[in-house]
Structures are given as C-alpha cells and as structure tokens.
Deep mutational scan, measured.
Amino acid sequence: CHSECLGNCSQPDDPTKCVACRNFYLDGRCVETCPPPYYHFQDWRCVNFSFCQDLHHKCKNSRRQGCHQYVIHNNKCIPECPSGYTMNSSNLLCTPCLGPCPKVCHLLEGEKTIDSVTSAQELRGCTVINGSLIINIRGGNNLAAELEANLGLIEEISGYLKIRRSYALVSLSFFRKLRLIRGETLEIGNYSFYALDNQNLRQLWDWSKHNLTITQGKLFFHYNPKLCLSEIHKMEEVSGTKGRQERNDIALKTNGDQASCENELLKFSYIRTSFDKILLRWEPYWPPDFRDLLGFMLFYKEAPYQNVTEFDGQDACGSNSWTVVDIDPPLRSNDPKSQNHPGWLMRGLKPWTQYAIFVKTLVTFSDERRTYGAKSDIIYVQTDATNPSVPLDPISVSNSSSQIILKWKPPSDPNGNITHYLVFWERQAEDSELFELDYCLKGLKLPSRTWSPPFESEDSQKHNQSEYEDSAGECCSCPKTDSQILKELEESSFRKTFEDYLHNVVFVPRKT
C-alpha cells in the first residue's frame, strides 16, 4: 500500500485506493498535508475557505447554543480562536489581540433580562453583547459592586439597553466600559436606550469621564423622579442622539420631579488639616426662599486615587461607600458681607490618608415646582503625618564578641513616609551569675543571650482551647457569634421535631 494509506488498500502504491488515510483526505486521495488554498479540518480532512465560511455563517444565523462559528488559524479551520487571539470578521482569520481579548457573548432569543446578581454573573467577562440587555433589578445585597464585577467589562451592545423598574439602582456607572450601543435591534418605538419607572436612579454616568455613542435609535425617559433633566440632556449631547427624540420621548413632568437638581456650584473657602482632623468651610448658599434650606450634607471617604465619582458603590438597598454628615444651616444675616460661612470639623480620621470630599445642599421643593440647590466639586484632601507606631517583631542576635545583629519589621501604621529608623542602645553591667558559677561542674549549661522565638506554653494553649472559665478566673470563653447562636437554635429545633416524629412513629394507638 501507499505510504499515506492506513489499515489496508485495494490497489498497491495508489493513494486513492486506501481504506483510511494516515494524515489527511483531499478529493478522494490521501495526502501528507493540505496544500494551499485548503485548510486542515478536524485533523483528517482538507477543506477550502468557502466550506469553513459556510459553517461560520450557519452557526451565526441559527443562534443555536453550542454550535461553533468556525475560524481560520495556522492553516486550520477550527471552532474558535485560541487564547490571546480574536477573529477578523472580513476573512475569519485569528489575529493577536492588542491588550485583553474581546469576548463576544451571543444571547438566546436576542435579549437577556438581568433581574438578579445570579443572572448578571452569566455575563461575567463579556466585552461584546450580541443582542439586547434588559435591566430589571428590584433589590439585593452589595448590588453596585456585584454588577460592576460582572457587567463592568461590557464595551458594546449590538441591540438596545433597557432599564425598567430597577428600584435598587442609583447610577449606571457599573457599566464602566460601555462605549457603544449599535441599535441594530430596537425596542418598540425605535428606541435604543429605554429608561422607565426607576424610582431611585439619580445618575446615568459621570459624563466628564465617560463617552457613549448610540449609532441608531432614540432615547426614552419616563417616570424617573430623581433623575434630573440636565442629566438626560447631557446624554443626548454626548451620545449623538440630540435631535432624534420626539416631543413625548422625554417626559418633562415625570423626570426629576422629586430630585434636588443642583444648578449652582458650592466653593470651599477654608481648608485646614491635622493628622486626624480636617476643618472645612464653604461659601454660604440661600435659595430664593431661605426657609427652603434644610441644611447641608457632607460626604467623605478614603480615596487612594483621584478618580472618585459621587455615586460609586451606591445602591438604593443601603450600600453606600460614603460617610454622610448632616449639618444645620448657619444663622442668616441681613448683611451679605457678614454672612457666616458654614463648615464642619471632621474628626477621627487616619493620618497621612487622602480623602475625597464634597458637600451639597438639602432643600425642600418650592411652590413653583422649581428645584434649587448647590453642590461642590469633589475635592481631595490629605491629612498630615504623625509619629508612626512601633516597629514590629524586633530580633537581636550576637554573632561574635563585638557585634549584635538587630532586625525588625516595619510598623503596622507608618502614618507617613518613613525615611529612617533611630536605634538606641545602652551598655549593661555583666551578670554576677557568670562569676559565681563553678565551671568545672559536669552538665553545666552556660547562660545564653542568643534570641529564641517566643512560644506559647501548654497552660496558655489549654486556656485558649477551654470553653469555660478556669477556677483562677484568668480566662473566659469568647462570646458566641450570631451565626453560632442561630445554628444552635436550628439544631435544637431539629432535635425537638425529630423526637416528636419518633414518638408518633414508635407509639401507635392500640386498636379498641
């Protein structure tokens, strides 16, 4: 048989008469490798580009789960590009990614509803959504962080984005990388972005840091009482949809009607710091009717980097990364020049730590249904340095008659930039024990000054392991946590139920 035959053949030295091919099969003959313009397919066939392209389009058009959109890589027609490569849609070739590779997620039936953290986790790592997304989240724990972890990498949506009755959302900033909504599939009414009845939605994105392009379709905003109209108009300008909307697409009466839409800028007039305090004062603000001013709200939190936005980490279910302080308005003076500047002394802060701070007014709604208010920009203030805590785990070892090696770990709280350490030492008198000992005694162990690591005695271990207080009263049991108490109650309830079950099964009433 021919060298490319495997198993047997019907005619000697003829690659077209093989029972099976050793390498690849091409047009009725066995070959060692697939010549151009053919590609290896499933490690035994040679196919042309049209064959591989037909497989790709067949799966793409069917949208069946589990099928493969075949691509070409290293002269092979394979189910998908290997790690580190992405497909070129024009020629199906796998090309190296520039940075992290995109991950295209194809949605069944063309859309997916995100109504819980669990459903959001199914899209973790996706960068391109081939379909439409509907966000409908009523509640949950730590929602802002969970949504950002699972949806934060999405850069492109081919269909539309719909935010509907998501009472738990305060902001859409968890879509931190969303840059493009194509609108290839539109919501009824030709809408590519749809926001309806979101009672706590206050911000779409921080438009000073976020760009969003909507290729096709219109915007729809109705019944978002805490979303200011200025935020919607800003989205029109940034996304390129200005002029597409009709009169009733953006409701003037049901958007922002319960919001404090600040239209003035508060400026800080005085800032002073110490290692654990920050004193702030800002310019006074009074609405047209000074009785509408209820006070100020001061927001602050630790910020290692200057990239904080107002609604980071917030949701309507209680999660809030900001510390909020309510401040009463100052006494009002008739003389504008003698107006008191409101302020606040922030206490209990960490030394040498940068804080993000902003302040906003708290006002009631005027009778004319106009909203007044003022808010400052987010500023960054760093507390002063102070003395560091003591170095940890000092170790001293003498390696000769004239040297001592000293080692330690950095302090747990540096409280500033540590530039150097101060080492103090003092000579001590020799131990009298060394002169009084009889060095001729056998088995004498000389006193040693070398360091030995501390260890816990058996008594201390027994005390720590004991669940009861000892007789001397030195140790006591740790208080039980809520989960331990709940577990004990469940076990007790189970024992009672099981005992009742045994009584009912074992003891049967005697027939009379």
Rank of each mutant, 00 (worst) to 15 (best):
D367V: 14
I135A: 03
I134E: 14
K350D: 01
Q216I: 05
P287S: 06
L172Y: 01
N263M: 03
Y305R: 07
G159L: 01
F311V: 05
P411D: 02
I232S: 02
D292T: 12
R124V: 13
K301T: 09
T185D: 12
C228M: 04
V128W: 14
S260V: 09
L298E: 00
K209E: 03
Q258N: 07
K267A: 11
S208G: 14
S116H: 06
T364N: 15
Y270V: 00
S116L: 05
S274D: 14
G189N: 15
G313F: 03
I157G: 00
E262N: 12
L133M: 09
R138W: 08
N340E: 15
D289W: 03
R164P: 06
G131K: 01
T215I: 15
T353H: 13
P329T: 09
R164V: 02
I379L: 10
N263F: 02
F299C: 03
R369T: 12
K103H: 02
Q354R: 07
T127D: 03
R179D: 03
E237D: 15
F290P: 12
P330S: 07
P329M: 04
L204M: 15
I378Y: 05
P304S: 04
N141E: 14
Q354I: 15
D257K: 14
K350Y: 15
K277Q: 02
S389Q: 04
L151H: 01
F174K: 00
T386R: 07
S166E: 02
V324I: 05
E148R: 12
E148P: 09
V363T: 08
T273V: 15
A120F: 06
L204A: 14
W408H: 00
Q382C: 06
L151K: 00
V238F: 09
G131F: 01
A316E: 15
N200S: 10
I214N: 03
T383C: 03
L219A: 10
G183K: 01
E231Q: 02
Q258L: 12
Q403Y: 15
D377M: 05
W207F: 13
K409A: 13
N255L: 06
S260M: 08
Q216A: 09
T386Q: 04
D335K: 09
Q199D: 14
G159K: 02
S274G: 03
L151A: 05
Y191H: 11
H233P: 03
H341E: 08
L349E: 00
T371P: 09
H233L: 02
K375A: 09
L331Q: 15
T113L: 09
G240T: 03
F175S: 00
S366P: 02
S389I: 01
P288F: 13
G110E: 05
L178V: 03
L406P: 01
Q245F: 05
D312C: 03
L123C: 06
G343C: 06
L280H: 00
G189T: 07
L229S: 09
P287I: 08
L196C: 11
G217S: 03
S260N: 02
L293S: 04
L201D: 00
L108S: 10
I357V: 12
M297T: 02
S171H: 15
D335W: 13
D377G: 05
S338A: 09
T254E: 03
P329S: 05
R370H: 02
A149W: 14
V325L: 12
S166W: 01
A251I: 07
F296Q: 15
K277F: 05
D335S: 15
K209W: 10
G131I: 00
P225R: 02
Q306R: 12
S116R: 01
F268K: 00
K407F: 03
K234F: 08
L133G: 00
V363P: 09
A149V: 13
Y160H: 15
E155M: 10
G131C: 01
L252G: 13
L153A: 13
G140H: 15
I137T: 12
P410V: 02
V359S: 02
T127R: 05
N142L: 11
H222E: 11
L169K: 00
F175Q: 00
D276R: 01
C317W: 09
T309L: 15
R179T: 13
S132M: 02
T386L: 09
Y223Q: 05
D197T: 13
R165V: 06
Q403I: 02
K337N: 10
Y160T: 11
K360Y: 01
E302C: 07
D328L: 02
Q382D: 05
L153H: 06
N307M: 03
N211R: 09
E146A: 13
T241N: 11
H106K: 04
S401G: 12
G217A: 03
N320L: 09
E156T: 12
S171T: 08
E237G: 05
E302A: 11
K409D: 06
S333E: 13
R124H: 15
S192A: 02
P394S: 11
Y305I: 02
F311L: 05
N387G: 13
I378S: 01
Y191I: 14
K253A: 06
W286G: 08
Y300V: 09
L266K: 00
P351S: 07
D257P: 03
E156R: 03
M297D: 11
T353V: 09
T323I: 02
S239H: 03
V324K: 01
D312Q: 03
Q306I: 02
T383R: 00
I327D: 00
R182I: 12
K226A: 08
Q121K: 13
I157W: 00
F311Q: 05
F296S: 13
N307Y: 03
F220L: 08
R247V: 07
Q216N: 03
A251P: 11
N320T: 12
G348H: 04
T241V: 09
S173T: 06
E109I: 11
S239V: 13
N150F: 14
I232P: 03
V170P: 07
M297W: 10
L169E: 02
S260E: 08
A149H: 08
N255G: 05
F358S: 11
Y191P: 11
D384P: 11
L201N: 00
L280S: 02
L331R: 12
T241S: 08
L227G: 00
E283M: 15
L123P: 01
F275R: 15
K375Y: 10
F275Y: 06
G139Y: 05
L123R: 01
L349F: 02
Y160G: 07
K301V: 05
E155A: 05
P410T: 10
L293G: 07
H106R: 04
K253V: 11
S274E: 11
L147K: 00
R291G: 05
L298Y: 01
N224Q: 06
W207C: 03
A195Q: 02
L161F: 05
R176F: 02
R165M: 07
K218P: 12
I250P: 08
F358G: 15
E122F: 05
L169G: 02
I163H: 02
G110W: 08
L219W: 09
G183R: 02
R124Q: 03
S119K: 02
L108E: 04
V128L: 03
I327P: 01
S333V: 06
Q245T: 13
W282I: 02
V128C: 10
V381R: 15
Y380G: 02
D292W: 13
Q121Y: 02
S366L: 01
K337Y: 10
D312R: 11
G159M: 01
V170S: 07
F193S: 00
D257C: 09
L265C: 06
H106C: 02
F290D: 14
T383S: 04
T361H: 14
I214Q: 03
